[in-house]
């Protein structure tokens, strides 16, 4: 601990050009006593793909998971700040996190299909939201968009867990997009996929952003340059005794990768430190 601490670095706020669908202002995120993330303003633009990059432990996943209150599953999690979604702070007392998650979907790093048939996996959200239309048509469309339809169309009754790892992840993507949620959060969605499947998922993301908003954590900087319109770079601050993540710089992907303002960003994208 440095008693004469200088003022902590805080990133310049990013002024989004278009509409902002989720305006996230993190003051502090705690796990118990541990300060995981501090002072990060991350606006998520409508119908754009926002990429979160940064070294391990920088809090990018934590911030992403705060956007649909997934972190509420952890009992010691505490969020200070606000996340304004359609004019409403999702951390307000009257907001039920269950409702938030129905509008802001999520795809996880590890494939996690349910112990049920492929069809039931994809139809899960539709049934949950009491969808009255043609479930079969929606399931087929979701599987097609997730680039999985051709492989599974003859075995929709088989268990989702009978698929290979890459197929399972695409199944989870199909499950998440079947209800066409307004915003889709993806936490390193391609880390379990081979390059071909990765490319298919990236194409899907580009297609989805025509109508929906996406935010994605990725460890793969090429992936960020390929799909993200806006990139937020996080780093981890060990000067305060803990390992606290914070936003270093956020801007159009092109600017972040070609003309970063911050020295830290420059070093990270050129691979000078992990």
């Amino acid at each position: 601990m440095n008693a004469t601490a200088e003022a902590l670095f805080v990133a310049e706020p990013f002024q989004a050009a278009g509409d902002v669908v989720i305006d996230c202002t993190v003051n502090k995120i705690f796990y118990g006593d541990f300060l995981a993330v501090r002072d990060s303003v991350v606006p998520i633009e409508k119908k754009k793909i926002t990429g979160f990059i940064g070294p391990s432990g920088c809090g990018k996943s934590t911030v992403l998971r705060s956007l649909n209150r997934m972190n509420d599953l952890i009992s010691v999690f505490r969020f200070e700040g606000n996340v304004i979604y359609h004019g409403q702070d999702i951390y307000a007392k009257k907001v039920d996190p269950v409702v938030v998650r129905r509008y802001i979907g999520m795809v996880f790093q590890q494939p996690n299909p349910f112990s049920m048939s492929i069809f039931d996996n994809v139809a899960f959200g539709l049934r949950l939201n009491r969808f009255k239309g043609d479930i079969e048509e929606r399931v087929e469309r979701a599987l097609q968009r997730a680039a999985l339809w051709k492989e599974v169309k003859d075995k929709l009754k088989n268990s989702g867990l009978s698929l290979s790892g890459g197929q399972q992840q695409r199944l989870c993507i199909a499950r998440a997009i079947a209800t066409e949620p307004d915003v889709l959060l993806m936490d390193e969605p391609c880390s379990a996929l081979d390059p071909i499947a990765t490319r298919q998922v990236e194409e899907l993301m580009l297609e989805l952003k025509e109508n929906y908003t996406l935010a994605m954590v990725t460890h793969n900087m090429q992936q960020a340059t390929r799909v993200a319109d806006t990139t937020a770079f996080f780093s981890v601050d060990i000067s305060q005794g803990g390992r606290t993540g914070y936003l270093v710089e956020m801007g159009p992907t092109r600017q972040i990768f070609e003309d970063p303002r911050e020295q830290l960003t420059k070093e990270y994208i050129s691979g000078e430190f992990s």
Partner: peptide, 26 residues
């Protein structure tokens, strides 16, 4: 596994929906 619980709540299930529709079949 914890990731199954995450998947269930991530879809926007209530606690009972998560238990009856996901945990029990699993």
């Amino acid at each position: 596994p914890y990731k199954v619980k995450e998947a269930a709540y991530g879809m926007g299930t209530t606690r009972w929906e998560a238990i009856l529709k996901v945990m029990l079949p699993t």
